[in-house]
Amino acid sequence: MSDRAKALSGLAVFLVLVAFPTWQTLGAAGDAARPELELPENETECIEETEYMSARHMELLNEWRNAVVREGETEYTSTAGETYTMSLTGTCMDCHDNRETFCTRCHDYANVAPRCWNCHIEPEGS
């Protein structure tokens, strides 16, 4: 093996190792059974379409966060025209009052660990 080849293969090994977080979860999906989520009993609709919420809730929360913290806005108007107070612990957790059987179950399945609760206080009784 020439030195150039050695250098390049070394570089390749390095890149593969560095990309560990990316490929680590590849292929892991599909094994586990889809999680059973406990939905709120008294409500049938979330603030937006269920599909949108399950795929995009993190982006929505991110928008809310910036709007509340930085712009001082408090109200969110949904696509359907309803207004809601932008609050994770107030609005979201008002219906989804069990973090364990809703948030965590799916986050575990998706292998994500959001850090919301490092700071935010879970409402009592949830």
């Binding site: 977080p21 990316t22 680590q24 979860t25 993190m58 292998n111 994500v112 660990a113 959001p114 850090r115």
Partner: peptide
């Protein structure tokens, strides 16, 4: 992939 890691990579 965790949320943090994903946003970090992004």
């Amino acid at each position: 992939m965790s949320e943090d890691r994903r946003t970090f990579l992004k």
